[in-house]
Design a protein around this nucleic acid. Structure first.
Lengths: 200, 200
DNA sequence: ACATTTGCCTAACACTTGTTAGACAAATAT
DNA sequence: ATATTTGTCTAACAAGTGTTAGGCAAATGT
């Protein structure tokens, strides 16, 4: 019953770690930094986790899972490629703004994973990106999008989405949904064959 | 006379450092890593540079200078906001593809600058971004671009441009100019009020 | 009631970190 | 020919790194 109300020590550990990794980067964050934010000694962390890298591993793969899951849901619901892309962008932005620290680690610090984990991670990320590429390719086939270089377009779009964590502030002027909508508009116009009428 | 033909030891130091910083990040790169790539002992580096941070400082500010310079030149030449933005994007892409390692440090590792240098750096970066914002604002006034949130648009565009260093390979399929043109098209369509006719 | 698990501690380890001091040889300047 | 500068070296430093071993008290299970 303590699980549902209080945050487990391990989750505190992960949250604090993600925070520090985002601020200072994985390499510049020490186990003692993490421990002190939890009111612990460094050695105590090893009761919850077997190494510093395991923290990174959990953060990276949990985030990869969240993103992949949210993308999978979209596949089945929306018929139209334009709607699917809009929704995929929205979900991506919603997820990363909901977990900005985890996302920062996912985007910036995955490079510090050990070789095996790095390979696994890159595979997962490729799958995720390929989900986006499929949507864009569908849009081209459906004659909704212009005949762009799909790989290039997806990289460009995702880079813009991921950059959000660099400036997003939970209490800022723009809500996650507003951000998502603006980015969708931007990306879809970038891909568009025909221009939608201006409504203002 | 050795200066013009051979690369000075200091420039070798900077090049090697930028390379390692891009690969492993500033914090995870040791003075001994840098030294060994130069065939030196770590202590010898201090003959050329007074600290590890000075290397970072030189890399970051040299790159900031290159970018600012290239942007300043554009202001005077092109009359139309659309042309100016297209050219600004092109120059940005050309500069970062010409110095991919320096650029990576500029984009990723500036956070490790000491507080004073970090403030200076952020100021310079703000000036640079404001150059882009001015162009976009001009475009809106000239009724060339739709009435977007300028700050947001510039951040989004620059994030897409900067991401190029993550995947750009000097011997890859796309040349820097091709990349620049595609990114210009993408950005300008994202900002466009009216759609250009498709030519294919 | 007793046994086990959980969660933390102190102490220590081997190693790496950025950096300094001082010596020495080669190149250069006077 | 002599003095100075340049570029490197070895040796060492204090501090910080991730991690392990072993102990101890409170919570939990039986």
């Amino acid at each position: 019953m303590s699980e549902s109300l209080t945050i487990s020590r391990k989750d505190q550990l992960l949250a604090v770690s993600a925070n520090l990794f985002k601020q200072k980067g994985y390499a510049a964050t020490s186990m003692r930094d993490i421990a002190s934010q939890l009111g612990l000694e460094a050695a105590s962390i090893y009761h919850h986790v077997k190494s510093k890298e395991e923290i990174l591993e959990i953060l990276c793969f949990e985030m990869a899972h969240k993103l992949q899951t949210s993308l999978n849901e979209i596949k089945d619901i929306y018929f139209n490629a334009e709607d699917r892309l809009r929704e995929a962008i929205k979900q991506h932005v919603l997820v990363i703004t909901q977990y900005p620290e985890y996302s920062a680690v996912f985007i910036q610090d995955w490079k510090f994973l050990s070789e095996n984990n790095r390979k696994r991670f890159i595979t997962l990320r490729n799958e995720y990106e390929s989900g986006f590429r499929n949507i864009v390719n569908d849009g081209i086939k459906e004659n909704l999008f212009s005949n762009v270089d799909t790989k290039f377009a997806v990289l460009t779009i995702l880079s813009a989405l991921n950059w959000v964590i660099e400036w997003y502030k939970p209490n800022g002027k723009m809500s996650p949904i507003e951000i998502a909508n603006k980015l969708s508009d931007f990306a879809l116009q970038g891909l568009s064959k025909k221009h939608f009428m201006d409504l203002n």
